[in-house]
């Protein structure tokens, strides 16, 4: 039995699925971030022959979420493909599986990311830099607050691959996580070959100046922890610029 956790943002009830999906039940919407499809073949082109099963693995996990939540809308929050030619490299079997999956949905939104700045060719759905529905704005990279102004509530984003380490009595455990401060929500990366960036990294910490709550992914539940302000160890600014994979 997989337990999703409810959160309230902008007056709306959202569900966080331990597999890494965000669900908005009122709109039958499912959002997922950073699939990085065809990352394996992207590395292979550079001479690192990673096992070529990542796309298949990621799509199988996505299919599980679609079966569980039966959404009408699917929002992919960018970096759905690892590079701009990823869509063209999809193996025929995987491409067919993805096409079937998308055919069952009323609306598919490909938010564009830094890895895939162009809309996928030959796949259902619309592409957008940003997409709004109700109080929510779906974008790939969270926008920093303007000087002195609070962030308007309702931003849902991906890009940073947030992960968090929790101390336990037998050493700390690190997992990908959702991160929210009640105004914005950052999704964990979903792809089979996606690593993570620690919440305390200035790139993420700066977006949550007052901290918030992290939801670490587990096989059948989330583990939630308040984070406090993510003020952390001083790192030199250049390290902050390192883009996540």
């Amino acid at each position: 039995m997989t337990a999703a956790a409810p959160v309230h943002i902008a007056g709306q009830r959202l569900m966080l699925d331990p597999a890494g999906f965000l669900v908005w039940p009122a709109e039958k919407l499912l959002a997922v971030a950073d699939l990085h499809l065809e990352k394996g073949s992207s590395f292979a082109a550079a001479g690192r022959f990673l096992p070529p099963y990542d796309t298949r693995e990621t799509l199988e996990r996505l299919a599980l979420g679609l079966r569980r939540w039966k959404p009408r809308r699917l929002v992919l929050l960018g970096d759905s493909f690892h590079d701009r030619h990823g869509c063209a490299r999809l193996p025929p079997a995987d491409c067919a599986a993805l096409t079937r999956m998308l055919a069952g949905l009323e609306e598919v939104v490909w938010v564009l990311g830094n890895h895939d700045p162009e809309p996928p060719v030959g796949l259902a759905g619309i592409a957008a830099e940003e997409w709004r529905l109700g109080p929510f704005t779906f974008r790939h990279i969270a926008q920093p607050a303007a000087m002195g102004k609070p962030v308007p509530p309702g931003e849902i984003s991906g890009h940073f691959h947030p992960k968090a380490s929790m101390p336990t009595r037998a050493g700390s455990v690190t997992r990908p996580c959702f991160m929210t401060d009640g105004r914005r929500m950052m999704l964990p990366a979903f792809g089979a070959y996606t690593g993570g960036l620690d919440l305390r990294d200035p790139a993420i910490a700066g977006l949550f100046p007052r901290g918030g709550r992290a939801f670490l992914l587990g096989p059948d539940r989330l583990y939630s922890f308040p984070t406090g302000p993510l003020r952390m160890l001083a790192r030199a600014p250049e390290a902050a610029n390192a883009p996540p994979p």
């Binding site: 929790m166 336990t168 401060d181 009640g182 539940r221 583990y223």
Partner: peptide, 23 residues
Amino acid sequence: LLAEAAALVADATDGAEIFGELL
């Protein structure tokens, strides 16, 4: 271990933060 740590934190905060409220 994670579940234990999560419960521990919840205890330590006296459940002051029940998620689902306006965080």
